[in-house]
Design a protein around this nucleic acid. Structure first.
Length: 584
RNA sequence: GCGCCCGUAGCUCAACUGGAUAGAGCACCUGCCUUCUAAGCAGGGGGUUACAGGUUCGAUUCCUGUCGGGCGCGCCA
C-alpha cells in the first residue's frame, strides 16, 4: 500500500510511458492550489524540454489517456502545462477504507529489517544534563522511531562520555580531599541517594575544572589520574565504576522524563580495548603514520577544496582523542551488529570531525563501501539575543528544571480551564506531564534540522497555536466524541460530502510525510503533516455537527473519518515521541 | 586566510528532486461558547524572499559576485 498520490503517480506514469516518455515524469503530488484541483502533475513541462516539444501538446496526449480512466472525475490542462486532477469520491473513499484497514497506515516496508545504529546521546557522566542535550535527544529519538516504523531494525546508543580527562579530574578531587566515601556510600537502590551524589558531582566538577585551569600542577595531577583510571588502577577504577552506575541512573531519569529511548547504554570506555588492535592494524596497513610525535591517519584527498587536517589517533603524550574512540566505536558496531547504516544526530559544528572519522574508517577498511555513514547535523540552539543560550545566572538551564517548569505551566492551564476537576492526582500529573513534553518536543521538532534556532522558553512552554498541546487537544476531542457516540469501530461505507472531502484527502498523505521525513532525517516534515491534519479536523469539526446527524449512513461515515483521523494523529505523534492523554 | 551553514511578514519558523496567487503560529483588529472539550473556529491587515547579475517557459530553491550573521579549521570533547 502507498499514499494516494503515489497510486496516481503509477497511473499517470503509465500514460507517459504509453507516449514514449519516461514514466518518472508522471509523478503526482497534492495540488498547491486546492481551489483548482486535488492533485497535480508537472511532468509534462519537464518532459517537453527533454523531447523538445510544446508542453501543452505533451500534456494533451497524457490527458487524453487519463480521461478514459474512471478513477478521475476531472483531468485538465492549466497554465503552461500543469495537469490538474480530481479523483472520484468512490475512489477516494475506497482508498481511505484501505488505509484504515492497514496496520501500517499505508506506509510500505522501506527498511527490510536492515540494522541501523543511531547516536543521539553523548552526555558526559557525572554532569547534570542541560538543555544543550535536548535537540540531539529529541530529534534522534524521533528519527529512530520513524526508521523503526519504516521497517528498520534500529539501535539507539546513548554513547556517553565516560572516559575523558573530566573523569580523572573528578576522581582526583574526591581522593585528594579524602571524600571518596561520598561516592562509595551511595546506595544504588535509593533514588534520593543517587540524586544526592549527582548534585554533589554537578557542583564539584565545575569547581575542580576551574581550579585545574588555574593551576598547572593540579591539571597534571588530574591527567595523571586519568591515565591511572584508563589503566584500571585502584581505587580509581572502582570509584569510576560507581560514578558511572549512578550517572546512568541519573541519565535514565532525565531521558525517561523526556520519553527518549535508548537500546544501548554504552560509552567511550566500552571501546577502550578495541583501540590498540585497531591502531596496530592501521599501522600495519600503513594508514596510520607518525607525525610530530603523534600517530595520525591522513584523510586529505586530491580533490579537497579545503584543508583537511588528519585524524589524530594518539597525541604526542600517548593519550587517545575522541576521533580515536569514535573510530573504535565503529569497529565495535560493525563487529557486534553489522549495520547497514550508522546515523549520528550530533551538532552541525562537528561536521569536520565526522568527515575525518568517516574517511578514516573507509580508508582503513573498517566499514564496507555500501555501509551508509551519515552525520545528520542540527543547528545551534541560541538564546533570544542570537547568542548561544545561557540562563540569567550565566549557566545553561538544566533539563529537569525545564521539564518541571513546563509541567507547572500545563497544570496552571488545566486549572484555568477547570479540566482537572474530579480527577485523581495521578491522572492530573500524567496529563500535565504529557502536555509539557508535547510542547517541548513539538516546539523543537517543527524546525528544520540544519538551521540554527532560537531557544525561547515562552515558546517551548506555550500551548496555543501551532504547538504540541494543540495536536493533543484535537486528538482528545476526537476520543471524547467517539466515546459519546458509542462508536463501534466497524468500517462503514464512506459517504463524502463537501465538508468531508478536505479531511479525507488529508488522510491519504501520511505515507508521503513519513517517507519524506525518513529520507531526509527530517522529523519536521511529519510535524507539518500532523499540524495540517489536526487543523483539517478542527475545521471539519466546526463545520458539521456529528452527534445530531440524523442520516445514519452519513453519521457513521463521519465517525469513521474521525476515528481514522485520531488513529493517524496518534501514529504520527508517536513517531515524534509524543504521547496523547485520554482527556485534557 | 580557507571552508561549511544561514539570511523569507514586527517576532519565531515552513515551502517535498525549480512550478500556478511564497504559507503557518505569535502579536494586532473583527466576529463565534443555551448541540459533540473555546488549549478551539471563521475572517482581516502585514512580503521587492539581504542585494546585484546569470541559467530557464518558470527561481525562495540552481550558478557567480557583494553585504550581513553563525560556526569550524593537528595533539580539548
Amino acid at each position: 500500500m502507498t499514499s494516494l498520490a503515489q497510486k496516481l503517480s503509477g497511473i499517470v506514469g503509465d500514460a507517459f510511458e504509453a507516449q514514449g516518455l519516461d514514466r518518472a515524469f508522471g509523478r503526482v503530488t497534492v495540488s498547491d492550489r486546492a481551489d483548482l484541483a486535488q492533485f497535480q502533475c508537472n511532468g509534462a513541462m519537464a518532459a517537453s524540454k527533454a523531447a523538445k516539444k510544446n508542453p501543452r501538446e505533451v500534456a494533451g496526449g497524457i490527458v487524453e489517456i487519463l480521461q478514459k480512466n474512471t478513477v478521475f472525475s476531472k483531468v485538465e490542462i492549466a497554465g503552461p502545462g500543469f495537469i490538474n486532477l480530481n479523483v472520484t469520491d468512490a475512489f477516494l473513499a475506497g482508498h481511505i477504507q484501505e488505509t484504515g484497514a492497514d496496520d501500517r497506515a499505508g506506509v510500505p516496508d522501506l527498511g527490510h529489517n536492515e540494522t541501523v545504529v543511531l547516536d543521539y546521546g553523548g552526555p558526559n557522566i557525572a554532569k547534570a544534563m542541560h538543555v544543550g542535550h535536548l535537540r540531539a535527544a529529541i530529534i534522534g529519538d524521533a528519527v529512530r522511531r520513524i526508521m523503526k516504523f519504516a521497517g528498520y531494525n534500529t539501535l539507539g546508543d546513548v554513547h556517553m562520555g565516560d572516559w575523558g580527562t573530566h573523569m580523572g579530574m573528578l576522581i582526583y578531587n574526591y581522593i585528594a580531599r579524602n571524600e571518596t566515601a561520598v561516592v562509595e556510600n551511595t546506595d544504588l537502590s535509593d533514588q534520593k541517594s543517587i540524586d544526592d551524589l549527582m548534585e554533589d558531582m554537578a557542583e564539584r566538577y565545575p569547581r575542580s575544572a576551574a581550579a585545574a585551569k588555574e593551576d598547572k600542577h593540579l591539571m597534571e595531577l588530574a591527567q595523571a589520574a586519568t591515565v591511572k583510571l584508563q589503566n584500571k588502577e585502584e581505587p580509581y577504577y572502582s570509584l569510576w565504576e560507581k560514578i558511572r552506575k549512578v550517572s546512568v541512573k541519573g541519565m535514565e531519569k532525565n531521558y525517561t522524563a523526556l520519553g527518549v529511548h535508548f537500546d544501548l547504554w554504552k560509552g567511550e570506555a566500552d571501546v577502550h580495548d578495541y583501540i590498540a588492535p585497531m591502531v596496530d592494524d592501521l599501522r600495519a596497513k600503513n594508514f596510520a603514520v607518525e607525525s610530530d610525535g603523534a600517530w595520525i591517519v591522513p584523510v586529505a584527498q586530491n580533490d579537497d577544496k579545503k584543508e583537511m587536517p588528519p585524524l589524530i589517533l594518539y597525541k604526542r603524550d600517548g593519550a587517545v582523542m575522541y576521533g580515536t574512540t569514535d573510530m573504535a566505536t565503529i569497529v565495535e558496531r560493525v563487529k557486534l551488529y553489522n549495520p547497514a547504516k550508522m546515523v549520528y544526530v550530533v551538532d552541525q559544528r562537528q561536521s569536520l570531525h565526522f568527515e575525518q572519522v568517516f574517511r578514516a574508517v573507509r580508508k582503513g577498511g573498517i566499514v564496507r563501501d555500501d555501509v551508509e555513514l551519515t552525520h545528520a547535523g542540527f543547528g545551534t540552539m541560541n538564546g533570544p539575543d542570537g547568542k548561544p543560550f545561557k540562563t540569567r545566572a550565566g549557566g545553561v538551564m538544566r533539563l529537569d528544571d525545564l521539564i518541571t517548569m513546563a509541567q507547572e505551566r500545563a497544570r496552571a492551564r488545566m486549572d484555568e480551564a477547570h479540566v482537572g476537576e474530579g480527577m485523581s492526582a495521578d491522572e492530573k500529573a500524567d496529563i500535565a506531564h504529557k502536555v509539557a513534553i508535547a510542547a517541548i518536543k513539538f516546539a523543537d521538532l517543527q524546525n528544520a534540522r540544519v538551521a540554527d534556532y532560537v531557544f525561547d522558553l515562552d515558546r517551548l512552554t506555550s500551548f496555543e497555536g501551532k504547538t504540541g498541546p494543540y495536536l493533543l487537544y484535537q486528538a482528545v476531542r476526537i476520543k471524547s466524541l467517539l466515546k459519546k457516540a458509542e462508536y463501534d469501530g466497524k468500517p462503514p461505507a464512506f459517504s463524502l460530502q463537501d465538508v468531508d472531502r478536505p479531511l479525507a484527502l488529508l488522510l491519504t498523505e501520511l505515507p508521503d510525510a513519513v517517507e519524506s521525513a525518513l529520507k531526509n532525517y527530517a522529523p519536521h516534515h511529519l510535524c507539518e503533516y500532523a499540524y495540517r491534519l489536526a487543523q483539517g479536523f478542527s475545521s471539519f469539526y466546526g463545520n458539521c455537527h456529528i452527534l445530531s446527524e440524523t442520516d445514519v449512513v452519513l453519521r457513521n461515515s463521519r465517525l469513521a473519518l474521525c476515528a481514522l483521523t485520531n488513529a493517524q494523529l496518534e501514529l504520527v505523534l508517536g513517531l515524534l515521541g509524543i504521547q496523547v492523554p485520554e482527556r485534557m
